[in-house]
Design a protein around this nucleic acid. Structure first.
Lengths: 215, 215
DNA sequence: TGCTATACCAAGCAAGCGCTTGGTATGTTA
DNA sequence: TAACATACCAAGCGCTTGCTTGGTATAGCA
């Protein structure tokens, strides 16, 4: 990400495109959208606190002060990044399931989708979302909590349907929390350019969840 | 942790006590030790970057400047906290295995021990250790990497011996990475005061690892 | 052509940050 | 008892931070 200019073509998936058209997320072609992309990138690279507003501004080629024409504070940027990240990832989950009917296949699709979200451009935002949770004021917190809830409900629903089919090793709620951690952590060790791709990794994670083991 | 005074009795486990006597970690009764404990506590509570040297100093009741009599920089404090945390947790792993001979029992003991480390006082330090890894200069990094390697080798050894006994669902190296994430994440959702204690949780995590499932 | 909204710059302010300095009190050793 | 090491204080320096201010250029619309 050398520099974000107006000329740069922004390619997004169809599902994200519909989110833009509905006005649910910012168009990445607009100045505001470019700033959000730059912020997400930097948050991921060096974390929220070590990223300065000057860093973000210079990445899109404007002065740091001009940034506050688009956002009312640095925290506001974080909130927007978090919000749009959840929306995009929720959309990814939905399209990943698509018209798959087999529960286990749905689960594998969910795992792969979440892996790609974590490894993707806004990966850090998901971690930051938890890590910086305490530093948010309560108003945006509720909004985000609601969005996160919808995201999680997709998981719980699929896990429950898998459970009826192939008994899971444990309660879906706890399993989901453990999987969340396992998946979120891959950002710290997994190299998508290595011999193993995200599809392979998804199959491994699936093995964690599905097992015929029973106490 | 209202205030750390000299008078306060410091109770530590026998294994940690031997580490102190060997001079491998700082005595928590000394000023330096009290500062390290305060720092670990604050790093866990609000992260490394949001913790100021003034925060740490005021928690032990000294001026912020006096802190630099004991440590040459804030980063130095982080390094020491990381170092001692790994040493203590490695010791916990060893004593957890104890004289257990059954590999699966050893694995369960390891899981419980790591859970207690993560949920314990220095829990954040383990996360910070990864999160702030990039902000360290290369010299202390190598030292810490070596300590971490020894910690991980205990896990890999036990997992390999389990594999011979009860086939694991996947390669021990990958399994360990996934488990690391699952366990590290519990800090974000698990309440040790709830109906489920860390021993129960350890049994659940064990189920993730052990299964008769094979592709 | 004038009006307004958008997008930005140049300059800088107030607060907070890590860290330094010069000095003091206390206890230990020679 | 002199010399020294340890543990600290009081004051503040230089820098970075998020953010503000007053003003300008451009474009669409009336």
């Amino acid at each position: 990400m050398p520099h974000l200019t107006k000329a740069e073509a922004i390619t997004v998936s169809p599902s994200v495109q519909s989110l833009i058209q509905e006005g649910r997320i910012t168009n990445p072609g607009t100045p505001r959208g470019r700033l959000l992309r730059a912020a997400a990138h930097l948050f991921r690279e060096k974390g929220y606190h070590r990223t300065t507003v000057r860093d973000i501004a210079s990445l899109v080629g404007i002065q740091s002060g001009s940034l506050f024409h688009h956002f009312k504070s640095k925290e506001d940027i974080l909130i927007q990044v978090m919000k749009e990240t959840i929306l995009i990832c929720t959309e990814h989950l939905k399209t990943a399931i698509g018209d798959l009917t087999e529960p286990v296949q749905q689960l594998e699709a969910l795992i792969r989708a979440e892996l790609e979200c974590v490894l993707g451009e806004t990966g850090e935002a998901m971690t930051v979302l938890v890590q910086e949770w305490t530093s948010l004021s309560s108003d945006p917190k509720e909004n985000l909590m609601d969005l996160r809830q919808r995201y999680e409900s997709i998981w719980i629903q699929v896990l429950a349907s898998v459970d009826k089919d192939v008994p899971l090793s444990m309660d879906p709620t706890i399993l989901r929390k453990l999987l969340t951690g396992a998946i979120a952590w891959v950002i710290n060790w997994f190299n998508p350019q290595g011999t193993m791709n995200s599809t392979d990794l998804a199959k491994e994670v699936l093995k964690l969840a599905i097992s015929s083991h029973r106490k």
